[in-house]
Design a protein around this nucleic acid. Sequence first.
DNA 1: TTGTACGCGTTATCAC
DNA 2: GTGATAACGCGTACAA
Lengths: 328, 328
Amino acid sequence: MATIQDVAKLAGLSRTTVSRVINNHPYVTEEKKRLVSKAMQELNYVPNSSARRLRRQQTETIAVYVPRITNPFFSHLVEVMEKEAAKKGYQLILCQTRYKKQQERNFLELLKTKQVDGLILTSIENDWSEIEPYLAYGPIVMCNEYNDTAQVPIVFLDQIKGGYIGTKHLIEKGYTKLGFCTGNHKSSRLAHDRHMGFLKALNEAGLQMKDEWFFSSTHSIQDGKSTFEIIKELSDPPEAIFTGSDEVAAGLVKAATDEGWKVPEDLAVIGFDNQPLAELMELTTVEQPIETIASQTMELMIESIKSKRKSVRKEVLLPFNMIQRSST
Amino acid sequence: MATIQDVAKLAGLSRTTVSRVINNHPYVTEEKKRLVSKAMQELNYVPNSSARRLRRQQTETIAVYVPRITNPFFSHLVEVMEKEAAKKGYQLILCQTRYKKQQERNFLELLKTKQVDGLILTSIENDWSEIEPYLAYGPIVMCNEYNDTAQVPIVFLDQIKGGYIGTKHLIEKGYTKLGFCTGNHKSSRLAHDRHMGFLKALNEAGLQMKDEWFFSSTHSIQDGKSTFEIIKELSDPPEAIFTGSDEVAAGLVKAATDEGWKVPEDLAVIGFDNQPLAELMELTTVEQPIETIASQTMELMIESIKSKRKSVRKEVLLPFNMIQRSST
DNA sequence: TTGTACGCGTTATCAC
DNA sequence: GTGATAACGCGTACAA
């Protein structure tokens, strides 16, 4: 492995000059530049990045926390982030917290041990108070998570609005008996907000909702199918369902059509996320602007790294899109 | 930021001793160990990983190349790899080649500049001759890609067999008119092999195939739907279709049932991968043992890093599973 | 415009 | 058992 020293020797110059050429410093004669370049080529030289990191005290690497990369929402987020990061010369380290507090805490050490310049959190398992101290070691940006007090940039969606516009859409289509499916209702701020939006739209329209039209702990395709099994037994079933997820919506539609129900005539369904599934099942869905969230987040991250200022709170609120297909 | 020097000073010992404690070297008195630990805690000290990397000449980081992380096959692969890597104290850098030669070549510099200890390739865009020279800088392991000559560990599936068992299944179910969908037929070894397996099963059963039952450049759900549009116009349509992808299979089934065809009575379809889509549409599919591929690959990678021997060829061949559902 | 010399934070080597 | 000291490879203040 050739070092900068070897290049210097071959070029008959000092290490300093070689370093200057590598880093495009001014005050180097064209002639010496050529000499250095030639020597570098000849020796197949590349700067050693570990040494650079130590010297410059930065790594050009960013850690991204996701619960699991197989979740299409997060993989899409990461896809765009990696692209944006690469464009600006940064690498991405993938950290899957697997919804575990301990796992998340382990990864925090990356920032402390200077293995990365910053942290992007797309989901948070621990209390903010656990994470806050690490701000001392480098910037943190939150993405798609919300916290009232954290003094960091936050890029997020107004999930109340998301619930609202989806529900409003159903109401405008003329449905009056609306059902609601949600995931982990109690713990998640996100699920809670969507529910608020749902209720707000209901209130505005003066609609009532039956308790038996509320379904919690629905996450998967299978959950959607099971939910339909319950619905079809109801004496007074809902006409339309707001689901917080395309998976659940897809399961509902599949089970319903298998049973001979017509969608949307017998049962309308609206999903969330606009995943490939939604296209397949022709689901109307509330689309989250994933590409924008991701690129904005990355931009704020790199900005924070470069500015080296104290972290400050900054909220970036992004809008949703309704994608209408044939399920409503 | 506290350094090892600060700890030494506070503990009233030398850097050497502190380093010994950190790295669990023998020959340190219990008493001094305690002293050092106390000082470390007090200063909230963590070893600087850049300095460590420079000194030890290794990074405990592995780069994983995938075309795009949003492809469920690759995200599943990466999910498991990250998990295995973390278990053994390694980080993963995500590199999306986006099916571009240039992009792939850019990432190769990671190995050369010592930013990672090794490379895992789950797809290859460039000729092997482009990549081979980088073996001088660190180990490379291939995963789900095949190459005849590369002197590296290769973990892969016998795609000929994959095509064969899927087709055999259709034949055993009694179908005799078999169609075939493939992606990028000409360039990809993988697609080519599956086709070979398909033909082998056909031959063994003494079956003939019509040219019009062969569909190339099919990748997406939409392609599956379009393929059905062609099939339904044929005067002599196939009874069953082998597709190289659950997406295509799902699109086919969706379009067919929408048109009032019964699956599998009017048209049987078999997918590939066992993605969530396959469960939703109740697709029979050929499952690739993704978790095994991923963990075996990671194991070989870490082994290669640790052994520091010259890279040698080693083939690990893994079997498929048939998952039978109601589409056949 | 170029070179000298020092430091980034660790760990390995060798003395004691 | 413990402690100087010298690398690891690079960048930069300062001097020339």
